[in-house]
Amino acid sequence: MDDFISKAADILECDVAGADFAFRDAPDWNSMKGFALLVMIEQDYGKRATIEEFMNCRTVRDLAVLAGAAE
């Protein structure tokens, strides 16, 4: 999970306090960052998520579950 949080923080360009961080609340959030999260999940975790699955995610933990990276 720490590794996933670190990658998410890198994309969001902000401190991510923990897995319960609501990623759309990140400063300067935009759809390109959402796209980057989806690409990261596919590149690093081999999981091709649909936009519907992504839209249902609220926290970094939700994304990690989607990626199969949650502990």
């Binding site: 796209f35 980057a36 690409v39």
Partner: peptide, 9 residues
């Protein structure tokens, strides 16, 4: 293979 610049390899 779309990816934002920061993730392009």
């Amino acid at each position: 293979a779309p990816a934002p610049l920061a993730l392009a390899k």
